[in-house]
Write a protein that binds this DNA or RNA. Structure first.
Lengths: 224, 224
DNA sequence: AATATGAATGTTGTATACAGAATACAAAGT
DNA sequence: ACTTTGTATTCTGTATACAACATTCATATT
């Protein structure tokens, strides 16, 4: 119960948004654990705000699937069962393949250039062994593909789905044994996009997400 | 500005949920039009509650993509451009096909029986010409397939996507010329599921959603 | 006449107050 | 010892108060 929970007051957004982002980060980082109660008064005093922005942030987390509220009994961090994780992962597989297919048709030369740079940066990060940076680079890589679809709604859904598995994804990235595979997969995906070859890109993405899905499931089962 | 907006107080849910459902219905029915401002005090007095539940409901609508809020300037009903509708429709195509594929693997005999009943009910509704009932039957049909995937997260996403096109979908259902096509498509989908033939089911669903997508786009362009 | 200024009004953002439900714990009864 | 009931406490649900910002319209100035 150490105070990892501090608001970034330098941002001039409504407090509800600052609280929302703070709580989301805390949940994804694991500072707020699945099942942990989100008590308004407690959070309000910890973050130094009133209950109102807390409540609104909870409503937002609820719609994102990161929190669950039971009427008259308050909210808690959503629990992640193996089943619900599998549910998320199978949707992600479908949409990630769709995204790379669309990106194949729509990606611009500049976006492709940027994607190559991000891919190289990811490789560089595997050599430093900085897991945090690596995770960021991985997120950037997929974001670059999402953006190239030109479909903001799809970007939103995929980001939300990624959120759900974020914690376990980080575990996967902690094991350097996976790095060569990841680099090879990223390379194949980029090649597919460069060649405007949807079949290749989809196939590469399929293997990529399937490997990650298997790893994530293994990690979850280990934890139980 | 007639008072279509009345709360159903017979439900014993928190007011925020009642307000949320009321506002969502109003938006989907078109009583609250795209771009229309959602002013807290006004809604509060119209619905006979305080601002607090209104604000929480707006936060929920926001996360669902039905409302947009600009800090310090309040919320308005999300506008639906042709582009954003196309974005939604192409995701829906992908996920609807995925859903029917999964349903093919996982649907239980009881669920299949129920689906057949709903299909027949839909056909019956086309003969009465009651568009409201027809829309409900169509929703039920797709819901039955979604449920059969056994993936609640997928159900949630698909319901949300359907929401976005709901208004225009109803227009499509107003034209009896479309009924024979719809009945044929539903029949083909059910057959695919009965035969546990994913290729057939996916193909049937593909044609079904593609036709609807084309119709919806046509309707939108007519309105401009 | 056109633009700038400023007060008045309206609206959102946040805090707080109060009522009612849920929970926990202790004492009494079986 | 176990269940039950009563009570204190905690927490949520809702309303309201107040401050800060945005908008509007009238007035003044160039």
């Amino acid at each position: 119960m150490n105070d990892e929970l501090v608001l970034d007051m330098n941002v001039c957004l409504p407090l509800r948004d600052v609280v929302f982002h703070t709580l989301r980060e805390a949940i994804l980082r694991g500072d707020l654990k699945p099942g942990e109660r989100l008590m308004e008064l407690q959070l309000a005093s910890r973050l130094g705000v009133s209950r109102t922005p807390i409540r609104e942030a909870i409503r937002m987390l609820e719609q994102e699937g990161l929190a669950v509220t039971v009427p008259r009994r308050g909210a808690h961090v959503a629990k992640m069962t193996l089943k619900s994780m599998e549910d998320v992962l199978e949707i992600r597989e479908t949409l990630d393949e769709f995204a790379v297919k669309m990106a194949c048709e729509r990606i611009s030369p500049e976006q492709l250039k940027r994607l190559r740079r991000i891919k190289d940066h990811f490789e560089a990060c595997t050599r430093t062994g900085d897991v945090k940076k690596l995770a960021e680079a991985d997120v950037s890589f997929h974001d670059a593909i999402y953006e190239a679809t030109g479909n903001p709604r799809l970007v939103g859904i995929l980001n939300n789905l990624r959120e759900q598995v974020y914690r376990y994804r980080v575990e996967y990235l902690k094991n350097p044994d996976n790095y060569p595979v990841l680099i090879r997969e990223h390379k194949a995906i980029v090649e597919g996009l460069e060649e405007k070859n949807p079949e290749k890109a989809i196939q590469a993405m399929h293997e990529h997400v399937e490997n990650q899905a298997a790893a994530v499931k293994a990690i979850i089962q280990m934890q139980t």
